[in-house]
């Protein structure tokens, strides 16, 4: 290596062709990244536009022409109710379970068991939803009849468990449980990753104060992972809201709007309703189904935006 000859001025212009090529690479990459971002916006607004245009006839049609004869809002409201109810059960069941699984894998399980268990939880995501549906109908539903009977007997004063219990097990309760299992892997994958990133010095700080493992988790891991828990829950909720085949198979649908989770009369969900009705629909009925898809799209959008504002507020509070 030779030392540089002292020169009159520092070279700021020129530079080799290769240098400029490298800068070109920067520009190409930045263009690609921008393009991907724009593509997402285009796809999203394209879907929204498709739903709006195709569903428009149903939104403007004479109420008597809509199936049910009461107008679109009355048609879609029970479906939206069923969608939200089944998703709420899924979230109530699936998210605590997912967090518990993540905590067990990260902080309690011996290393080898943790890795195996983590892989199995991830595999849950690979099961097709129709298989979940079949499992719900053939296995979980019948198995849940006893529990649902117990709930009716002991908690029957609550509107959720008023009964009468159906012997098929094809209830909102069962559907919600299956949805809960279905959202478990995505929620667990996100929270597991974040929990394992908890700064070691915080964990040690808590344990050095004489905290038990659970107290350490409450003091450091959960506050640290709070926004990730909310974000993961929203991903799970999004999946539960849009889930189609499992619900379509499991629920015995009557169209009733009821909080009664264990009887034979259940509201359908928007997605399941589209899947079940689409093959036999034509003309305005198709438009109505597409418009109900628009309603689902709107629900998901609102839920996501609400979640984002919750996260933003939580972050601000933490600072």
């Amino acid at each position: 290596m030779s030392t540089a000859e002292p020169s009159d001025k520092i070279a700021l212009t020129g530079g080799s062709r290769r240098d400029r090529m490298r800068r070109m690479g920067d520009q190409v990459f930045s263009g690609l990244a921008l393009g991907s971002g724009v593509l997402i916006l285009v796809a999203l607004s394209g879907v929204a536009l498709f739903l709006l245009i195709q569903g428009w006839p149903a939104l403007t049609a004479d109420p008597s022409q809509i199936p049910g004869g009461d107008g679109f809002v009355n048609y879609v409201a029970p479906l939206a109710f069923g969608t939200i109810l089944s998703s709420a059960i899924a979230v109530l069941v699936g998210i605590p379970m997912a967090i518990a699984v993540s905590l067990f894998i990260v902080f309690y399980a011996p290393k080898r068991i943790a890795q195996t268990l983590g892989a199995f939880v991830d595999l849950l995501a690979a099961i097709p939803s129709i298989v979940y549906g079949l499992w719900g109908v053939a296995v979980l539903g019948p198995a849940m009849v006893g529990l649902q009977g117990w709930l009716e007997g002991h908690l029957g004063f609550l509107p959720f468990f008023k009964g009468p219990v159906t012997t098929t097990g094809r209830t909102m309760f069962t559907a919600g449980l299956v949805l809960g299992v279905m959202i478990l892997p995505i929620v667990s994958a996100v929270t597991r990753e974040v929990f394992s990133q908890t700064p070691r010095k915080l964990i040690e700080g808590a344990l050095a104060l004489g905290a038990t493992r659970w107290e350490m988790i409450r003091m450091t891991v959960l506050p640290f992972g709070r926004s990730a828990i909310v974000g993961a829950s929203m991903l799970g909720l999004g999946r539960a809201l849009g889930e189609t085949m499992a619900v379509a198979l499991i629920l015995s649908i009557s169209g009733d709007v009821t909080f009664n989770l264990i009887s034979a009369g259940n509201p359908s969900t928007i997605a399941a309703n589209i899947a079940l009705k689409f093959p036999e629909s034509s003309g305005l009925a198709v438009d109505v189904l597409i418009a109900s898809g628009l309603a689902l799209f709107a629900i998901t959008l609102v839920v996501n935006m609400a979640a984002r504002s919750v996260i933003a507020r939580a972050e601000r509070g933490a600072r």
């Binding site: 010095k201 915080l202 808590a206 050095a208 004489g210 905290a211 038990t212 506050p223």
Partner: peptide, 21 residues
């Protein structure tokens, strides 16, 4: 060990107050 650590406390190399508290 939890009770041991209540009797024998510890202060670490880099300050580690709980950030959300």
């Amino acid at each position: 060990p939890v009770l041991v650590r209540r009797k024998i406390g510890m202060v670490f190399q880099s300050p580690n107050p709980f950030p959300t508290m």
